[in-house]
Design a protein around this nucleic acid. Sequence first.
DNA 1: TAGATTGTTAATCGATTAACAATC
DNA 2: TAGATTGTTAATCGATTAACAATC
Lengths: 230, 230
Amino acid sequence: MTARTSNDSARDIPEATVARLPVYLRALMTLAEREIETCSSEELASAAGVNSAKLRKDLSHLGSYGTRGVGYDVEYLRYQIAREIGLTQDWPVVIVGIGNLGHALANYSGFRSRGFRVVALLDADPGRHDEMVAGIDVRPFDDLESIVAENDVAIGVIATPANAAQDVADRMVAAGITSVLNFAPTVLSVPEGVDVRKVDLSIELQILAYHVQRKAAAALVEADVEEDSA
Amino acid sequence: MTARTSNDSARDIPEATVARLPVYLRALMTLAEREIETCSSEELASAAGVNSAKLRKDLSHLGSYGTRGVGYDVEYLRYQIAREIGLTQDWPVVIVGIGNLGHALANYSGFRSRGFRVVALLDADPGRHDEMVAGIDVRPFDDLESIVAENDVAIGVIATPANAAQDVADRMVAAGITSVLNFAPTVLSVPEGVDVRKVDLSIELQILAYHVQRKAAAALVEADVEEDSA
DNA sequence: TAGATTGTTAATCGATTAACAATC
DNA sequence: TAGATTGTTAATCGATTAACAATC
């Protein structure tokens, strides 16, 4: 009775590839907007900011959706990648913590356009309740369980201060959420089987700072070398 | 005459390690807050959410800052990592695009506390000028060049819509900025030597969606197997 | 058939991990 | 000296890349 999906090769896509599929998807949408119907791996790779060997290798994990000598059909490949990621279905999402960042996330159009539907905004602060944000009213955090159950929410977004994040994650997991996107600058501990992805704004800046510093140091050394040879 | 810095081993830290240094830094700050003065690689690794072998390997690229049989001095290691990343100095930053996300970024306390100083908020929309955000007034985008020059800005943050981002990046580069943190959902092309890091909110959600879908598919297969064996 | 471009192979590179000698 | 824990080695794993046979 075991009904396998039509494409067994779809299993076990390397993480590095998974992380790039959304980038390819966006590049394909840009091409489609410009009414380009076909593209080569070279063209798509350039639009996505990667090299074409990597692109072809990545796509080879999904299946064989191109035509040798011709390239890829933009719309067909777009659909296949969307299906692979799971964007052909609707993903109900809750956002907890409606401060500045929560506002920004609730209003972010990139979510809705990719099939993510914000079903609720939650905040522990009663002062925020019934405020409307992005057309959705802010509800008490204690409504989490009922909202998750009623809407079959699988993805939770944490946009609270760091000290509240672990509690929120615990409650989310208890309510049945298995995937968490964490914007709070803290390490969450969750049971096996729960996925956490972290976006940390200040860490990105710190990585940049490291490289700025290195560039400055390299420039100094170079100046010294010139001085030496003079 | 070439004056090398005291620690030549500080050069050529692997990218993967650089990306984790800020995580260690944050973990050390948490330990320091709890007035813990010494920690083992095991304890620090656990606080940072990595395994201890990786932590020790990472730290070994910076130098030898621990004591065998004892562990690491929290404050000393914190300082060494901060120095390595370049956080012992002040980094002037400009933010362009003061929509929801720009607001959130301008108000984000994690920047200031790590030595990033927002010297200006810029927006092309005259309707937003002279509005105060996070105690800084919003200025015209055309002030970019003079602000960069006056404040020695090396890092620019782009929080504009996608269609404006490339223009903003071009102007930033022309003004002398060599490191860009891009929140706009688009691939930027910049000259060699300019660093771009990208934070894409919807891509993170899409990666999560892929894993949710996989978990659901795996659960189905398992149910089928049980049915078969029944 | 000739030209173009994919999908795959195999080599290379970088990151992770376990194990342990060095040493406090 | 005995116990603890670092820093390093070496093995393994996964990702990237160039090259090219397959094939439209």
